[in-house]
Amino acid sequence: MSGCLELEATLPLRELTLEVSLEIASGERLALLGRSGAGKTSVLRIVAGLLSPPSGRVSLGEETWLDTAAGLDLPPERRRCGLLFQDYALFPCMKAWRNVAYALPAPAGERRWRALELLERFGIGRRRADALPADLSGGERQRVALARTLAAEPRALLLDEPLSALDPATRARARRELDVLLGALEIPVAIVTHSPEEAEQLADRTALIERGRIAVPS
C-alpha cells in the first residue's frame, strides 16, 4: 500500500488551460477519458514530474512531490512514479532484458537474471529478451515496457494510452492481460485512454477530461 495519490494543478497549454483536481486511492484504478488534445497526457506528466505547472500540488500519502506554494518540486527520479509511455519509449540501443535491468533496484550481478525472470512472467522468453526493441512486435514491446515500468517498484502507476500502439487482434488479448495485472497491484493507477470501452474494462471509475477540465467525475 502506498497511500492516496492527490493532484491539483493549473497549467496553461497551447490551446487551453489545464485545471484538474484528482484523487486516486491505493489499489484503485482511475481512467482519464477524453479526446486528443484534452490535456490527459499533461496530467500524467505533471504527476510523474516531467511537467512543472506554475500552480499545483501533488502528493502520495504523506509524501509531497509538488507544492508550488512551498517551492517544492521533486525531480522524476525521486518520485518513484511509474509511467508507461504511449509509444513505450524503450531504449533503442538496449536489448529487451537490458531495458528491464535498467530499472531494477538490484545489485549489478543480479540484474540480468532478475530481468529475465520478470520478462518471463510477462511472456517474453530468453530468445526474445535478447532482441532490440526495433525487432520486437508491438505486443512484445508493450510487455517489455510494462515489465520495465514495474521493475522499478513504483508507488503509483500511470499508463498513457497503453493499448493504442497495438493492432486490434493483439489489443484484445493485451487488454485482458493488463486487467489481470493491474488488479493485482496495490498502488494508485491512472490510465489515460480515448476509448470508453477500455476505460470500462480497465478502471474502477472514470473521469472525463474536456478542454483541460474534469467534466464528469464518476
Binding site: G49, L83, D87, F91, P92, C93, A152
Partner: peptide, 29 residues
C-alpha cells in the same frame, strides 16, 4: 534524439547524468 526514452529513464530512477550517460550518449553514438 527522441526525448521520450530520456524522460522514461528519469521516471525509472535515473538522475540527469545517468540518463545522459546511459541513454543519450549510446543513442547518439
Amino acid at each position: 534524439l527522441d526525448g521520450r526514452p530520456l524522460e522514461a529513464a528519469r521516471t525509472l530512477g535515473a538522475g540527469p547524468f545517468r540518463a545522459f550517460a546511459t541513454v543519450a550518449v549510446p543513442s547518439a553514438r
